[in-house]
Amino acid sequence: MTHRTTPPPRICPDCDGFASVAVTLGGRDVRGHLRTITAHCATCSGTGLVRTRRVREGARA
C-alpha cells in the first residue's frame, strides 16, 4: 500500500485557492490600458492555503 509522504495542502474555503484577483475599475487610462486593482483574500492573506494552528501539549485553554 502506498502512503503519501506529505499531507495535501489545505485550500482556503473562502477563495478556493484563487487568492488574488485583478478587478477592472471600468474605463481606460490615457494610454488605452484597463485600470485594474489587485484584491487579495482576507482569510488567507493571498496565499490560497489555510494555516493550521498547532496547540502545544499541556497548554491551558
Rank of each mutant, 00 (worst) to 15 (best):
L34I: 04
R4L: 15
T2S: 13
A39H: 08
H3R: 14
G27R: 02
T47F: 01
G26D: 02
A42S: 12
H33I: 00
G58D: 03
E57P: 11
D29Q: 01
V23N: 05
G58V: 04
A19F: 01
D16R: 14
R4V: 09
C41D: 03
R10M: 11
M1H: 11
R51T: 13
R60K: 12
L49D: 03
C41S: 03
R10F: 06
A61R: 14
H40A: 14
R28F: 08
A22K: 14
V55D: 03
P13Y: 05
C12K: 00
P7M: 06
H33P: 00
R31P: 00
T6W: 06
V23W: 02
A42G: 12
H40M: 09
G32S: 00
A22R: 13
A61C: 06
V30W: 06
C15Q: 05
S45H: 15
E57D: 15
G17Y: 05
I37R: 14
D29L: 00
L25C: 10
P13F: 03
A59K: 07
A42P: 07
H40N: 15
T47G: 02
H40V: 10
A42Y: 06
D14S: 13
G46W: 01
V21M: 06
E57R: 15
A39G: 01
F18G: 07
C41Y: 03
A39M: 13
D16T: 11
L34G: 05
T2I: 10
A19S: 15
G48W: 05
G26S: 03
P9G: 02
L34A: 11
C15W: 03
C15K: 03
H33Y: 08
T43S: 14
R60H: 10
G48Y: 03
R28P: 00
D16S: 15
A61K: 08
A39S: 12
A42L: 11
A22C: 05
F18C: 08
T47S: 15
R56N: 08
H40E: 13
G26C: 04
H40C: 08
R4E: 14
I11M: 08
T6E: 14
R53A: 11
R54C: 03
T43H: 12
I11V: 15
T6D: 12
R28Q: 07
V21F: 00
R56L: 12
G26H: 02
P13T: 05
T2F: 14
T6S: 10
R28L: 07
G17I: 04
G46A: 06
A19V: 00
T24Q: 10
T43M: 07
T52F: 07
R31Y: 10
C15N: 04
P13R: 01
C15V: 06
T5Q: 14
I11D: 00
H33M: 03
D16Y: 13
D16I: 02
C44A: 05
R60T: 12
I11G: 02
R28I: 02
R53S: 09
C15Y: 04
P8M: 04
C12T: 01
T5E: 14
G58S: 04
T2Y: 09
V30L: 10
R4N: 10
V55H: 06
T52D: 12
G46K: 01
A61P: 07
V50M: 12
L34Q: 11
E57Y: 10
C41N: 02
T43Q: 11
H3Q: 15
D16F: 12
A39L: 14
R35S: 07
C12V: 05
A59Y: 01
A42H: 08
T5S: 13
S20H: 02
